[in-house]
């Protein structure tokens, strides 16, 4: 499964703008809408990249593996979920910090092409099996 990197950058740019709006308006519903977009993105069906595909018809010069950006959408979904819990339970700091974390990742992707979610993958893998590894040794 291949993805068009231009569409992914475009999607990250819209995500950045939406998350800025979420913070400015402190609107849980807008964050909920973004969470739905993240959820669709984990299945490779992000409305943002679909919008890009209807606007831009030319073929990309290079395609990339679709799995890393999908994993990053999962990370985005987790942060958006934490933000929603924050909003709906009235724990505003949690809502703002979680949304800010998702915004940071989206901004780094849109502006610099860095995929924070992708890079977290190895760190998570390093931490997770640690407990298992210690038992047999």
């Amino acid at each position: 499964m291949r993805a068009d990197p231009r569409a992914l950058r475009f999607g990250a740019a819209i995500t950045t703008m939406v998350l800025v709006l979420v913070l400015v308006t402190e609107s849980p519903w807008l964050l909920a809408a973004q969470a739905v977009v993240f959820a669709l993105g984990t299945a490779g069906r992000s409305p943002y990249t679909m919008l890009f595909k209807t606007l831009v018809k030319s073929a990309p010069k290079e395609t990339e593996d679709a799995r890393p950006p999908r994993f990053a959408q999962v990370v985005g979904l987790v942060f958006a979920g934490a933000g929603l819990i924050g909003f709906f339970t009235g724990i505003t700091p949690l809502a703002l910090v979680a949304t800010a974390a998702a915004l940071l990742a989206a901004l780094l992707n849109a502006a610099f092409g860095f995929c924070l979610g992708c890079e977290m993958y190895l760190l998570i893998r390093r931490l997770l099996p640690a407990a298992k590894m210690e038992v047999p040794q």
């Binding site: 400015v24 402190e26 800010a100």
Partner: peptide, 8 residues
């Protein structure tokens, strides 16, 4: 939220 957005 505005300040958090600008800071981020």
């Amino acid at each position: 939220g505005l300040w958090v957005a600008l800071g981020t």
